[in-house]
Design a protein around this nucleic acid. Sequence first.
DNA 1: TAGTGTGAAGTCTTTCACAGCA
DNA 2: TGCTGTGAAAGACTTCACACTA
Lengths: 208, 208
Amino acid sequence: MSSRDSIPRPTVRRLSLYLREAESLLQAGHRTVSSSGLATSLAVTDAQVRRDLGHLGQKGRAGIGYRLAPLITRLRRALAVDRSRNVLIVGAGRIGRALMAYPRFDQRGFRIVAVVDADTSLVGRAIDGHVVQSVDQIETIVVDGDIEIGIVAVPEADARAVAQRLAACGISGLLNFAPCRLNVDVPVIDVDLSSSLEELAWAMAEPG
Amino acid sequence: MSSRDSIPRPTVRRLSLYLREAESLLQAGHRTVSSSGLATSLAVTDAQVRRDLGHLGQKGRAGIGYRLAPLITRLRRALAVDRSRNVLIVGAGRIGRALMAYPRFDQRGFRIVAVVDADTSLVGRAIDGHVVQSVDQIETIVVDGDIEIGIVAVPEADARAVAQRLAACGISGLLNFAPCRLNVDVPVIDVDLSSSLEELAWAMAEPG
DNA sequence: TAGTGTGAAGTCTTTCACAGCA
DNA sequence: TGCTGTGAAAGACTTCACACTA
C-alpha cells in the first residue's frame, strides 16, 4: 500500500479527522499517537486507522505509534492543504456571512479574499472586513485575484449560472451550498443542509 | 429486495436527492419519471436508481417509469420526513442565524421552535422571529416543547457539554456544526465545513 | 418499444488476525 | 509487551446484462 495509489474517498474524509485530532494532540503536548488512540477518539477501528495512514507512506513505529509532527505534515500534503488558496464567496446572504466569519477557514489556509453579491444595496458595504463587490465582476476578481476556490452561497435559482461563470473563468473547485447539482466540469463538494437533516431523520427512525 | 431490509446509508443520501428532484418534476407538471431520467439529472447510473428505489417497495412500470406522486410519498416515508418535527437551535451566532432563516427546513417539516444562546446580551432579543432564550433553559424547552432534534451551532469548546445536556433530556437526534465528535448516544450527523473544504482541496489536486 | 427488476459479477472498503519489530 | 503493517477474508455497494412486461 504505497503513497502512489489514489486514496479512496472515504479515507480522505477520515484523513481530515485525523489531521484535526493530531493537531489537537500536538497542541496538548503529546509527541506520538497510536492507531488505537486515534481510533477511539474518532469512533473508527484501529485497523482502519493503520490502513488509512498506510496510504500516506507514513511509517509508525511498533510499540510507540506515529510521531505527530511528521504525521501532520504528511496528512496536510495528502489533503493538499499544505499551502494557502484564495477563496471567493459568491452570495453575501446569511450563509455567506456565516462563512466569512468562520475562523477555521483561515487557519486551514483557505483565504477569503473576495465576496460578491447580486444585491446592489450590499455592494460597497463592508461585512466582517470584506467589502462586497458586484457579482458582475466575478471574472475579473477570479482572474486578477488568483482565486482557486469558489463558494456558491446564492439562492438555488442563481446557483447554476454562477457556477458556469466561475468554471468558465478557470476556477479549480467549488463548495456548493445550493440544493441542486451544479453541472460544471470542476470538482464540486455539495453541502446540503436539508439532506443532512433528512439523513438524520432516517437515522433517528432506524432501529439500532 | 424488499422494503423490510435496512437501507444502506449511501442509498439514503441519494433518496434525499431523488425526493428533491421528484418534487421539482411534479411541480413542473410531470406525472412520471424514468430511472434514466433521474439518473442523468443526478449524475448516477440508471441501474443505481432502480436498485435504490427497489428498497422502497415502490414499483415502477415497464415502458413508463415511476409515477411521481406515490414515489414522493414513499420517499418521504422511507426518509422518515412524512411528519413534522420540532427543532431547537443551540447557538444564535452566525451559523445559528443562517439556519433560522433557511426556508427549506420548514418546507421539509423541520420546525424551528426555539433558539437558545449562552450570551446573555442576546437573550430576549428577537432574531428572525425567534426570541432567543437562555441556554440554561435547554432542559425545560426540550421537554415542554416536544423537541426531537437539536442543532449544535456553538463553539467547539461548548459543543460536547451542550450535546450531553440535550441527550440527557431525551432528544432524539443532533445536527452538529462544531468541528468535533459529540460522544452521545443518539444519532448525530456532522456538518464539518473545514472537512468539506479539505475534501475539495484533495479532489482538486487529484488527477482526473 | 421503452423501461423495469434483479441474479450474478465485479469493485471497493472494512475487518480480521497474526507475524514481526522496537 | 505494545504496537505496526498487511495478506487474506469478509462485507458492502455498484454495475452489468438481460428476461420480462405494459
